[in-house]
């Protein structure tokens, strides 16, 4: 078995202009996903929008800069993630295909293992 991080990238503007109906629909989709794939889930969170992000460059140096905003400005921003366990990439992709991402998509990354 291996762990994969499923990163959810979506267009935040769609959520910003979405009403309660959109919010309810997405919440329900995530709850459904959680109950169907609970056995494979190792963690997951939704993130506050990038307008709340702070970026810090030059960490552990003498020239640290702290700036407002996300690390990279993109149309589709990281908005949440699931950490899943799967036997191989095909199995991980099958789970990732079920992750709600109404306004974007997901990226699947193997978690690095140090031995």
């Amino acid at each position: 078995m291996a762990e994969y991080l499923v990163l959810i990238y979506e267009n935040e503007a769609e959520y910003a202009k979405g009403d309660q109906g959109v919010f309810d629909e997405v919440m329900k989709a995530h709850n459904d996903f959680g109950s169907t794939h609970g056995a494979s889930l190792r963690g997951g969170n939704a993130l506050q929008p990038t307008s709340t992000a702070t970026s810090i460059r030059g960490t552990r140096t003498d020239s640290v800069t702290v700036t407002d905003g996300p690390f990279a400005e993109t149309k589709e921003a990281l908005g949440g993630y699931y950490l899943i366990e799967a036997p191989d990439l095909d199995a991980a992709i099958e789970i990732a295909k079920q992750v709600p991402a109404k306004f974007g998509g997901v990226e699947v990354r193997p978690v690095m293992v140090f031995d």
Partner: peptide, 14 residues
């Protein structure tokens, strides 16, 4: 190797 792309014939659905 790293992402564990399997060495397998996909199942009927895929």
């Amino acid at each position: 190797a790293v992402a564990r792309i399997p060495y397998r014939v996909p199942d009927a659905a895929q």
